[in-house]
Design a protein around this nucleic acid. Structure first.
Lengths: 338, 338
DNA sequence: CACCAGTGTGAGAGCGCGCTCATTCAGTCG
DNA sequence: CGACTGAATGAGCGCGCTCTCACACTGGTG
């Protein structure tokens, strides 16, 4: 193997010796201090390049009491529904945003059986800040961490906000209003909704938006069934709606997966989309556009949400002012199903 | 605020003082050394509990030259297709497996514009080992890292394996053979395939499995079109197959997303599934089961793959022997589409 | 020409922990 | 009863870095 692979990683000290300066000066150059003579800067940089020096993160963190790393916390129960692209997109948004900074991203799956392990990890000086995402996105049980370490939540608090937590959310109410109005404009009058769980803001708010648009148009809000955001639950909800044997000419589903579950049931019943029943979903899943007919839906960028969360957290960590709430807008995408 | 939130985190030293022992003894207890008197162990544990002590990761890592953290590397270009539940499931598998250990999981999005940044991070003593997943899953461009730090790949090397890299893969060839044979057993004879890119093992191997099963049954292997694993590409491939105007009674798609893309085109053409054309997919996406008719597919657990990767890496890090290759089996799930 | 401000640089003290090595204290043997 | 072994514990160094502070040097001022 020639030179042993275990050759010691170069240290600040070695760079200093090589460049003929002190450790302190090399440290200044590495950290971009303004008060170093240009000639020394280039000498140091040359030495760094020659030795292929990389600062040791652990040492730096020990000395500076900062870790340059943030954690994305996902409750374990949530991780089981990981199949939902939702989280993947958020992670992507966070990761890509952080890639441009010096922060490192850690994924923490919070065991519900042993919440203290997570809490200790988070408060034990291992991270500079935390991002918390839950499928029960109103779950702010990590709120108290905020006293110790900056925390940004994905999704607004389900309960009355104390005005102290930081979060990024999409405007679910406005999105649902837009989706429902779209169906009304298309001339539909018997518009059902397949709602999500009322204990999640995403479920609650989308239902609220539907109610608001319906009421505003003087339409009846009796046609509602609940699912759990899974395709199967969407199918079951659709079955229950059809079983009511009342006029029904459109469905607003609280997410695309449930909408596609409904598709199957509608097809089984010999009804056609959108002629008999128009369908609008929510989330703009990749598969909605490949379905037949392509699904009309509300688009909201989860990568954008992840990026916004990361951005807000970095601001907090670095002591810059940041808004408590950031609300992202959604966009109607009209396709063949409505 | 009463007691300041910035109250110093307790240190080994403080625990030692509290328990009336030396730092070394506390360290032994924390690290489970066998040679400590039981009475001291409990005294120390009591002190730890009272002070709510958590070891400082940076200091520990500095002193021990181990970081207790591993990185999951995802090339940036791959991260754009993050919408594919594929990665999310792998991350989940890795994260859940690691949650039971002391290792921390970091997500690294490798910028292709600046590969050195990633390479330096990985070799700079920041991690104990790395997991590399790429959509181009044959991409072992991080292979050389293996000399510096243990690496486990997701997916086998695309090119001739030098027998030195460690990887976990699913048995794509066997899975495709199984899927194709299933169609043959159902009496289909004009079986097309919508293959994935031939420069990815998942694409190449599934195509190979289809060819193998077809040849073995004496059937023609001319009915092939390629996609890129996206629903839209599946739809286009199906369109090209139908445009050939040759007998066609079944399609094996290299993944479910392309299969569902094909669904739409088959429906448009007024053909029925499975009566006119039977369809089998691959991956067991959540949506396949909600489609109408429900999609027959090959199931392979990506969470299992992630867990297997993590397990293998931990073994390598801890110096235990580990197989170079681990091949996971797939399972046929028969539903309404075939 | 002594004096002071300003600027750049180096010396050195930790950061919290693991680990080696010396030390202590029982218990055992000759 | 004193030397000897072995197990349990403690003292202290060093991991690689940041940061404070003192120092050296420059150039202008009284």
């Amino acid at each position: 193997m020639g030179l042993n692979g275990a050759a010691q990683a170069p240290t600040l000290e070695m760079v200093a010796a090589r460049a003929g300066v002190s450790r302190a000066t090399v440290s200044r150059v590495v950290n971009g201090s303004p008060k170093v003579k240009p000639e020394l800067i280039s000498a140091v940089n040359a030495a760094i390049a020659e030795l292929n020096y990389v600062p040791n993160r652990a040492a730096r963190s020990l000395a500076s009491r900062r870790t340059e790393s943030i954690a994305l916390v996902i409750p374990e129960s949530t991780s089981r529904v990981f199949a939902d692209p939702f989280f993947a997109m958020i992670i992507q948004g966070v990761a890509v945003h952080l890639a441009a900074t010096d922060y490192t991203l850690g994924i923490v799956v919070a065991s519900e059986a042993n919440p203290d392990k997570t809490r200790r990890y988070l408060t034990g000086g291992n991270i500079d800040g935390a991002l918390v995402v839950s499928h029960h996105s109103g779950d702010h049980s990590y709120e108290r961490l905020g006293r110790t370490v900056p925390v940004v939540f994905g999704g607004r608090p389900l309960h009355a906000d104390d005005g102290e937590s930081y979060y990024v959310d999409v405007d679910n109410i406005a999105g649902a209003v837009t989706a429902t109005r779209h169906l009304i404009e298309r001339g539909r009058r018997h518009i059902a909704t397949i709602a999500g769980p009322a204990d999640m803001p995403a479920g609650f708010d989308r239902e609220l938006g539907w109610r608001r648009a319906m009421t505003e148009a003087g339409l009846d809000t009796g046609l509602i069934e609940w699912g759990d955001f899974s395709p199967a639950s969407g199918a079951m909800a659709m079955r229950r709606l059809l079983a009511r044997k009342v006029p029904l000419d459109a469905v607003f589903a609280a997410n695309d997966q449930m909408a596609l579950g409904a598709y199957a049931v509608i097809a089984e019943s010999g009804l056609s989309i959108p002629d008999d029943i128009a369908v609008v979903g929510y989330d703009d899943d990749a598969l909605g556009s490949a379905a037949a007919p392509a699904l009309t839906t509300m688009h909201q960028s989860m990568t954008e949400l992840g990026a916004a969360m990361a951005e807000k957290l970095v601001k907090l960590i670095e002591g810059e002012p940041a808004e408590h709430a950031t609300i992202l807008q959604t966009r109607l995408i009209v396709r063949g199903s409505s």
